[in-house]
């Protein structure tokens, strides 16, 4: 179907002053905002804005497995459903989930499973629903990061959080946190995720071309940036309880004030 404006890529991905098109340095992250407990009906939930990416994640579980034959007698199962809204991308996405969404769901599921104690929940399922409502490159990493937060918000025992980020190569230069344009027009894209309980990679994909040396450097800069995002995850988790604490303190204060009168 034709569109009035066509999706075109710029020839250069760096500006005259050496910065990237959105004004960032090579090792600079886009602004990241996270919040937990945003969906009341869910057992746990989180919302993430990462540059122009906007992602919701909700966790339900442990609950009955549906359909029943998927249940495992000795352990729980984790099911992840990564979906994008029709309006999250340049050209309207068809409403039914496509091959890409199914593959990414699986990759994220495999990434998150190691941090859970599924053997403690035989016969049940944990379902993680991820909805990308606005997309601009790196949605699988954003989704993994926000899904880990939602699991933690649900109070599900975890060995650690999981944090994810894509690094890559554009116009021959190594950069971190590729934007949508950089992802499409760049030379290499390397999404990865770390499970912090053992500091190992739990999600790893790579498309493009890099020399061995470039790969080594990319990995190292990814780990540095991942630590920065991890701190933000922890702050987001804590801030929910800090808010509750402040609220309770305020109530107690107003009660004691009332008593004195």
């Amino acid at each position: 179907m034709p569109l009035v404006i066509k999706d075109e890529y710029p020839e250069k991905l760096f500006r005259e002053d050496g910065k990237r098109l959105d004004g960032r340095d090579k090792t600079e992250l886009r602004p990241i905002k996270m919040e937990v407990g945003v969906i009341n009906n869910a057992d746990g939930s989180a919302y993430l804005e990462w540059g122009n990416n906007k992602v919701f994640a909700a966790v339900y579980g442990p609950r009955e497995v549906h359909p029943h034959h998927l249940a495992k007698p000795d352990r729980g199962i984790l099911r992840v459903f990564y979906r994008m809204t029709t309006f999250s991308v340049f050209e309207r996405k068809r409403p039914a989930p496509g091959r890409r969404e199914k593959e990414i769901s699986m990759v994220i599921g495999d990434c998150l499973e190691p941090v859970l104690f599924l053997e403690l929940y035989p016969g049940t399922s944990f379902e993680v629903f991820i909805e990308v409502i606005d997309a601009d490159g790196g949605t699988r990493c954003a989704s993994t990061t926000v899904a880990a937060l939602a699991l933690a918000d649900a109070g599900i025992p975890m060995k650690s959080l999981v944090t994810s980020l894509a690094v890559g190569k554009i116009d021959g230069e190594l950069v971190i946190d590729l934007s949508g344009i950089e992802d499409k027009a760049g030379e290499a894209d390397l999404p990865c995720a770390i499970t912090w309980y053992n500091d190992e990679l739990s999600l790893l994909q790579f498309d493009g071309d890099m020399t061995l040396e470039e790969m080594n450097t990319s990995m190292d800069s990814a780990v540095e940036a991942l630590k920065e995002i991890y701190e933000k995850q922890l702050t987001a988790l804590k801030s929910k309880y800090i808010a509750i604490q402040e609220e309770t303190l305020k109530q107690q204060e107003s009660k004691t004030d009332g008593g004195e009168e």
Partner: peptide, 27 residues
């Protein structure tokens, strides 16, 4: 609220929350 959409709204009514976006095609 949605950058990629040609129009959008995030509306809550009490606990209910619906996010809507507009896309277009030429046909």
């Amino acid at each position: 609220t949605i950058e990629s959409a040609e129009g959008s709204a995030d509306v809550t009514l009490g606990d209910t929350r619906i996010i809507t976006g507009l896309k277009y095609e030429v046909g």
